[in-house]
Design a protein around this nucleic acid. Structure first.
Lengths: 107, 107
DNA sequence: TGATTATTTCGCGAAATTGCGAAATTAAAA
DNA sequence: TTTTAATTTCGCAATTTCGCGAAATAATCA
């Protein structure tokens, strides 16, 4: 059973792991479905080694999971609510009322 | 009109501003309602100057707003979906099914 | 087996973050 | 108007993060 403090840390890790523009871009790509690292390199617009580290951080935080499939590694969004929360943040103007009251509901 | 890239940055700022254990603690306190800095200093367990900077970062990201009331400054959660998302992250075990499909809905 | 493709790990310097105490600010109280 | 209480700003040292290229791994292909 995690202590309250370690729970704070774990939750902070989730937020922290997403707090970077390139990671937001990768996340957006992953909301549409699983992707290989090569796709995420395109989405991020950064070098392979850098993207690999970004992915490992999000995986360590529990946001993503990965699976080796043949020659490539596939990453998948492990917390669906992260995707909905992202959608909420992206459309505050389009759905102001929804944003205020129920932005994270299923569409 | 913000460019796509600046939108990425803005969203990343929201996540980044929450990616710290003390900020999660303050956020938890603020989900219950507005609080003065003095209350948040207690919640965070850090010095005043440090807490003040944490708050200013979350405010700059658009997560919080503040208002001077008499001698004190009151902070308020500006994005309600942040509170729901936090609740979602905090109870993955208690509501596994909800977590997977609709964790951010209003209760 | 040897070559190729996909990905991760390592080591680096540059930049950002964190926490603190001291000093500045601001509004109410005496 | 002087004092006091609440909060922010500043400057600093320690730590962490970021992006890169080179090297290490791993799995497929010839």
């Amino acid at each position: 059973m995690p202590t309250l403090q370690s729970a704070d840390r774990d939750i902070a890790e989730v937020f922290k792991s997403l707090g970077h523009p390139a990671r937001v871009r990768m996340l957006r790509a992953l909301v549409d479905g699983e992707k290989c690292v090569c796709d995420l390199v395109d989405a991020a617009g950064l070098g392979w080694s850098t993207v690999s580290r970004h992915l490992s951080v999000m995986k360590a935080a529990g946001v993503l999971s990965d699976e080796k499939r043949g020659k490539q590694v596939i990453y998948r969004l492990e917390l669906p609510c992260v995707g909905r929360f992202l959608g909420c943040l992206e459309h505050p103007d389009r759905y102001p009322e929804m944003h205020a009251t129920a932005c994270c509901e299923k569409s």
